[in-house]
Nucleic acid binder design. Structure first.
Lengths: 132, 132
DNA sequence: CCTTGACCTTCTAGTCACTAGAACCTTTAT
DNA sequence: ATAAAGGTTCTAGTGACTAGAAGGTCAAGG
């Protein structure tokens, strides 16, 4: 299978697929003309990567997950540990964004947003008034 | 004021302060020995940057905000527009993270996480079962 | 046979916002 | 004289791609 077809079935751009090969996540065969030739196994791995990345796992997490996926001797506890750590990281990010959101929404609401120059948003950033 | 002191009062590492100079966000004087010499104005700008970055504004947003901060002729509507756009971006990210969180939490809960190899997390990533 | 167009290849460099580290200079204190 | 603590510049690395250039390959049409 050529790369253009894999783009469709894995849901990843060709550039990304080549990049994943460069960092050792897939190893497609090569034809005589130098073209990459993907097996269904390769396509499975790429689809796996597409989903895992879609859940926000880092490339290194993906590497570990793919490796566990390939082991018949794996322990589900290892998979779960990776997922739980990632879940905590997601929660941390959500908390951080919500905190930003709160402050920012408050400031936006306080700003009349017209032709006049006075602005609570700038005041806050400059450290005037209620700032941290 | 030397850079080490500015680190404290602006709450930014020296490397970052130099980087901000490199990309034209501050322009401290230089002493005869080549050392940077920060005015209180410079420190204000850096503290402004520290807060704006803390609210997640991009460097380019910060540049625009700093510029508006310096204009007496500014219109608060321009500031507010930047803040509102950023707020929407934050909301978008929160939605994305929550969606990941939902899927992931569900999978983690379904995984028994012991010494056995069968694992709903890997099954989902591999596209077995309920996956999209 | 030649060309066109669609596909493929590799390589370099850019993104964002820093951060690490090397190699070197200056100042102050002992 | 020297050591420590500050300063300087420069290069390169981070994560996960993405854009673009320069060129090789293949099938179809004239």
């Amino acid at each position: 299978m050529q790369i253009r077809e894999v783009e469709q079935s894995a849901g990843l751009p060709a550039k990304t697929i080549r990049y994943y090969e460069e960092i050792g996540l897939v190893r497609p065969d090569r034809r005589d003309n130098g073209y990459r030739d993907y097996s269904t196994e390769d396509v499975h791995r790429l689809r796996f990567l597409q989903r895992a990345r879609g859940l926000g796992f880092s490339i290194e997490d993906c590497r570990a997950l793919l490796s566990l996926y390939g082991e018949t001797e794996r322990e589900s506890a290892d998979v779960r540990a990776i997922a739980e750590a990632h879940l905590e990281e997601i929660d941390r990010k959500i908390r951080e964004l919500k905190s930003m959101r709160q402050t920012l929404a408050h400031l936006v609401q306080a700003c009349h947003g017209d032709a006049r120059p006075d602005c609570p948003i700038l005041d806050d950033l400059a450290g005037i008034g209620g700032g941290t």
